[in-house]
């Protein structure tokens, strides 16, 4: 009788366990994947505040188009810093997309950019190849962050904290 009761109640117990797992999973998502409704100016100010301005300088829409093939007017906000030296691969890009469907377009462009830069530096600038291989990329909601730098991890953390 007791066994039968347990068997009958198994689906009920299991559904509550799954529901608890869903709640926990959503909490994890909120902590690690969620984006922010904060204005772009606030996030970009926080990110640009920690960048090494001796190496990086702010770039314009033409540079974004040239290097990533992206039109800055397609997005809600763009912050792009890169080194002016042709011997350095350092760059930091922050984009706020208008629609979720643009995320893929941007992440594809980032992937292509890394590949193309690896092609540029491979064979003669191993330290630049290393930072390209360790490039940091993060998609949080509609924000996309990308950094190629020795400090990429620190920049990424600043971006995550600013959300």
């Amino acid at each position: 009788m007791k066994n039968r009761n347990i068997r009958e109640n198994m689906p009920t117990i299991a559904k509550y366990i799954v529901l608890a797992l869903i709640a926990g999973y959503v909490a994890l998502l909120m902590m690690n994947v969620s984006g922010s409704r904060k204005p772009f100016e606030e996030i970009s100010a926080a990110v640009s505040g920690v960048l090494d301005m001796e190496i990086l300088t702010e770039q314009d829409a033409q540079a974004l188009k040239r290097n990533f093939g992206l039109n800055s007017s397609d997005y809600e906000g763009v912050l792009y810093y890169a080194s002016d030296s042709s011997m350095s691969a350092e760059e930091v890009l922050l984009i706020l997309v208008r629609e979720d469907s643009q995320i893929r377009q941007v992440t594809d462009a980032l992937e292509e950019r890394v590949e193309s830069r690896l092609g540029d530096f491979e064979g003669y600038a191993p330290e630049q190849v290393k930072i390209l291989e360790d490039a940091r990329q993060s998609v949080r909601g509609k924000y996309i962050f990308f950094a190629v730098s020795e400090d990429a991890q620190r920049y990424l953390e600043m971006f995550a904290d600013s959300l």
């Binding site: 689906p11 299991a14 559904k15 799954v18 529901l19 797992l21 869903i22 999973y25």
Partner: peptide, 19 residues
């Protein structure tokens, strides 16, 4: 993972309805 959890939830809800 969300989809798999949703599958599990509905599967168990279906079994509960049967019981």
């Amino acid at each position: 993972i969300l989809m798999i959890l949703s599958i599990c939830l509905n599967y168990f809800c279906g079994r509960e309805l049967q019981e």
